[in-house]
């Protein structure tokens, strides 16, 4: 028998017996960030494609919620900070090595853009709304004129944001479960998938819904592929990553992950969407809601399980 114990009674709060420094705010923050990124990617993409009219929800309606989502995300992050009074320190340096730092800066770019985008489209949702001041109107006109440039910037930073939600974790070589480069694309895909789901939920156009349902199926397919790929990577890697993967393969996170994330959050809603496309009449909101919940649970599970996974020595 091999016994390895700490004999000095160490019981540091939030670190022992297992790391749990990041509670619910961080996965929530990452989920919301990913979701907003997903929506904004679609909005800017179809703007650049000139398909505003074809996908009005994606381009005009859905982005309206992104400022709220982003602010909620930032609030969650702020809530999680232990030294809140020094929050401003985030914006006194740019530290490219630190995902936290460039994430903060990315948000610093994306959030105003999301506000601008919403401002440009607010009248689509509220036709009677108008700006009170002329200079705002002038500003609006300016952005509207350069909306393609705006869309380019937005799509780039939204992609960064989407990837960032994964990189924040994967940059931690200390947590074997997180330490995989697949997490970036995976979280980006997941963010886009939840974004697509939101669009499906909000859209009133059957055509748009079908389009995004189809897109979602593809994204879910990619996600499943990446997940399988991730596990293959783990299992082909070092002992620590094999152990980390074990958390999902027989370990404590097996059921939540495979049942709630993979089945209820990916396979089942994708199947529903397939049926829907084939013309079956199903309650429209079930699949997208499952996708969104699945995405949320996915972030939580990765955040929690990742903190448990550790190097063995």
């Amino acid at each position: 028998m091999k016994e390895e114990i700490i004999v000095s009674g160490r019981m540091n709060h939030m670190v022992d017996p297992q790391l749990h420094i990041w509670e619910w705010p961080i996965p929530l923050y990452l989920f919301l960030g990913g979701l907003a990124a997903g929506i904004l990617i679609f909005a800017s993409f179809y703007t650049l494609q000139g398909k505003e009219a074809k996908f009005p929800t994606a381009v005009r309606i859905a982005p309206l919620i992104t400022p709220i989502i982003l602010v909620l995300g930032l609030l969650a992050l702020f809530y999680d900070l232990n030294h809140k009074l020094f929050f401003w320190r985030l914006y006194t340096t740019i530290r490219l090595e630190s995902p936290m730092s460039w994430g903060a800066w990315t948000l610093m770019v994306v959030t105003p853009l999301a506000f601008i985008w919403s401002a440009l489209h607010i009248r689509e949702a509220f036709p009677r709304f108008d700006w009170k001041y002329d200079w705002v109107k002038q500003l609006e006109a300016f952005f509207r004129k350069h909306i393609k440039i705006l869309a380019w910037i937005l799509i780039i930073f939204s992609l960064i944001l989407g990837v960032y939600t994964g990189i924040l974790f994967s940059a931690f070589n200390a947590r074997p479960l997180w330490n995989t480069s697949i997490l970036g694309p995976l979280f980006l895909t997941s963010g886009m998938s939840t974004g697509a789901a939101v669009i499906v939920l909000l859209s009133k156009s059957h055509e748009e819904r079908l389009h995004f349902a189809r897109l979602d199926i593809v994204l879910i397919g990619i996600e499943l592929f990446l997940i399988v790929h991730m596990f293959m990577g783990f299992l082909a890697s070092t002992e620590v990553q094999i152990q980390a993967a074990g958390l999902f393969l027989g370990g404590p996170y097996t059921t939540p992950f495979w049942l709630f994330v993979v089945f209820m959050g990916l396979i089942f809603p994708a199947s529903l969407e397939v049926l829907e496309i084939k013309g079956y009449k199903l309650p429209l909101i079930v699949a997208p809601i499952l996708v969104i919940l699945g995405g949320l649970i996915f972030r939580f599970i990765i955040a929690y399980a990742g903190q448990i996974s550790r190097w063995l020595y």
Partner: peptide, 13 residues
């Protein structure tokens, strides 16, 4: 200088 984000705590193997 610290904001208390906990990243360093999570990053230490």
């Amino acid at each position: 200088k610290c904001i208390g984000c906990g990243a360093c705590i999570a990053s230490c193997p």
